[in-house]
Design a protein around this nucleic acid. Structure first.
Length: 575
RNA sequence: GGAGCUGUGGUGUAGUGGCCUAACAUGCCUGCCUGUCACGCAGGAGAUCGCGAGUUCGACUCUCGUCAGCUCCGCCA
């Protein structure tokens, strides 16, 4: 006989003898009879021992929480009146024949039934995983990755690993750098994504590739951002947008069916970036509720409400949200909360048979006879300030009205972003990345008016969260060179930074495209978690430290000696 | 880089310019209990109130600084 999982005990015949390994959860000592509950990753079960063996009884009394034990005993049905309906194994228990403490556990550093600070839990992450929801989340994560691997393999994709130690890529995220002992003054960069390599694989004739790629970015962290995270990186040759959409929609369908038992409708709706912004005030619209942003510029163009009319006279717009029921002050309060700190103001008007409730001038607004019963939230100003602001208010209102259903999954493709946007310093920068194919028929088009050009890029959005993005790539060296030039790179810079890449494009690059899915975020949504830290096994704190290991750390003396020449070289090169 | 919130026995919280020799719960230690199920009961140990400076007759409490954690903005193609 050998050890079985606790979760399998319910499938074993009564009165058979089983061997279980796990952690002691609770000990309930009644002097002459002692109960203790043990747990492994599959479940929990109650064990008991009584006076049939005084020796055993004495040993069991000494157990404490999270001692690691091996228990051998008989599966017994509990007395009828002792069945615990709150326990999956509440109708049975193990009568202990013998047991062994494999390793006693020191008193736990925190109360596992309470809610210790996140820092404490990170410091003792293994305790948290053992006792919390993390165990379930990690299982979900494992199932998700296996579903995705199978799906992609079945569709002819090869899993290939690309280097993490690579060359610094300018623009985009800040890279982590790694000093190279053998070449003082030279550094690797940790890959912020496998972008260049996956294109190289297409040029290599791999045709279909995927990878669970770790990506590293040295930027400030958020609840949904870690310095290292995992992307499902996918690239294919001779494809169009439609092929990528089909592939990913099939994958999501399979994933949600196998992980959650949820049937996802395909194809996913699509909207352009402009539609998403003007209707939802966001490039990642949450389509779980259909409230959209409307234009009220005409309604207010002759209004006595000067604040709005003046904005319109200066070329601004008035946009707003409408809900067909009147709302009270608590809604206004929620919106105030949502807009505080944004620097934008909104006008709240709730109209009913009882009159107007508003945070604006009531007498003036009463004259706006076109207002219907229900609630309006208006904002006026420059279109590109007003839309994102109303986008925020829309979400706050949706949440307040209880329109965000956690069990609903609304996917949408957002397409046709502008190829370039204007950076703060006035220069142009790539809105997606500089390897994205512009939607043009001739190179002249992009040279003449780059800001008008759209990118053949697409984002996949689920319930207002961007879970992935990709594009058809540039596969011709001359077009790629022009894009670099528009981004302000000199020919010398292009040569130094991307010479090898332009070479590759000129040596038989096939048309290709792909997508990268944020695996951590995807798992977060599958688990219903609200922070990445709940689906990443050993995450870092907001300032990038690891409370468990104490990373990052200072160098040892011996390491300092070895690395000294490297930093000497850096200092000599100057700033 | 900016804004906000938080920091009190191992853990989670309470507290207020003197009432604090710092409270409660849980955990820990000792003892009692034959059917509990986060068992119960009795007793006990455990904290220079994140750190530093200042104001004050007096600071856990007020002020400034600093450190750490969290949320948001910037940033993250």
């Amino acid at each position: 006989m050998s050890r079985i999982y606790i979760g399998d005990v319910k499938n074993v015949k009564l009165d058979s003898v089983v061997e279980l390994c796990g952690w002691v959860q609770y000990v309930r000592d009644f002097g002459k009879v002692v109960f203790f509950v043990i747990k492994d990753r599959t479940g929990i079960i109650q064990c008991y021992t009584s006076t049939q063996s005084e020796e055993l009884l004495e040993l069991v009394k000494k157990l404490s929480m999270d001692d690691v034990v091996r228990v051998r005993g008989t599966v017994k049905r509990r007395p009828e009146d002792q069945i615990n309906p709150n326990m999956e194994t509440g109708d049975i228990e193990i009568e202990v024949e013998n047991f062994e403490v494999l390793n006693p556990c020191a008193p736990l550093p925190y109360d596992v039934n309470g809610e210790p600070s996140e820092f404490t839990k990170l410091k003792y992450r293994y305790v948290d995983i053992r006792h919390g929801e993390l165990l379930t989340n990690l299982k979900t994560r494992s199932v998700a990755s296996s579903v995705i691997r199978n799906y992609l393999s079945r569709n002819g994709f090869w899993e290939i690993e690309t280097p993490y130690l690579t060359k610094y890529t300018p623009g985009g995220a800040r890279n982590f750098v790694v000093p190279v002992r053998q070449q003082p003054g030279y550094f690797y960069a940790l890959a912020e994504s496998p972008q260049i390599f996956k294109q190289m694989l297409m040029i290599s004739g791999i045709d279909r590739y995927f990878q669970f790629a770790r990506c590293f970015r040295d930027e400030d962290l958020r609840a949904d951002r870690q310095p290292e995270f995992t992307q499902v990186d996918i690239e294919a040759s001779f494809v169009t947008e439609e092929n990528i959409y089909d592939l990913v929609e099939g994958m999501m369908q399979q994933l949600f069916r196998e992980v959650l038992g949820v049937q996802v409708e395909t194809p996913f709706p699509r909207m352009t970036y402009d539609e998403a912004m003007s209707l939802y005030g966001s490039d990642k619209p949450d389509l779980r509720f259909q409230m959209t942003i409307n234009d009220y510029t005409d309604n207010f163009s002759a209004s006595k409400f000067n604040a709005f009319r003046n904005v319109i006279d200066r070329g601004g717009v008035v946009k707003g949200l409408y809900w067909n029921k009147p709302l009270d002050r608590s809604a206004l309060k929620v919106l105030d909360q949502a807009s505080s700190g944004s620097g934008n103001k909104f006008l709240f008007v709730s109209k009913s048979v009882n009159g107007l409730l508003t945070n604006g001038p009531k007498s003036v607004l009463t004259e706006e006879t076109w207002l219907e019963d229900g609630t309006y939230v208006f904002a006026a100003g420059d279109k590109w300030d007003v839309l994102p602001f109303l986008g925020e208010l829309r979400l706050a209102l949706g949440e307040y009205l209880g329109l965000l259903d956690d069990d609903e999954y609304k996917f949408v493709w957002v397409t046709s972003r502008p190829m370039f946007e204007i950076a703060e310093d006035g220069s142009l920068q790539a809105a997606h990345h500089p390897f994205t194919m512009p939607d043009i028929t001739s190179i002249d088009e992009i040279r003449k008016n780059p800001l008008k050009v759209r990118a053949r890029a697409y984002d996949i959005v689920l319930n207002g969260v961007e879970i992935g993005g990709g594009s058809i790539r540039i596969h011709k060296a001359d077009l790629q060179r022009v894009v670099f030039e528009i981004l302000g790179l000199s020919s010398e810079q292009i040569e130094e930074r991307f010479g090898f890449f332009l070479d590759a494009l000129s040596y038989g690059a096939p048309p290709h495209g792909g997508i990268a899915l944020g695996f951590d975020r995807l798992v977060m949504l599958l688990c219903g978690a609200d922070s990445l830290r709940q689906v990443i096994v050993f995450p870092k704190t907001k300032s990038g430290t690891c409370p468990l290991t104490g990373a990052p750390a200072r160098l040892f003396a011996s390491q300092r000696q070895e690395l000294l020449p490297i930093f000497k070289q850096v200092i000599e090169e100057g700033g």
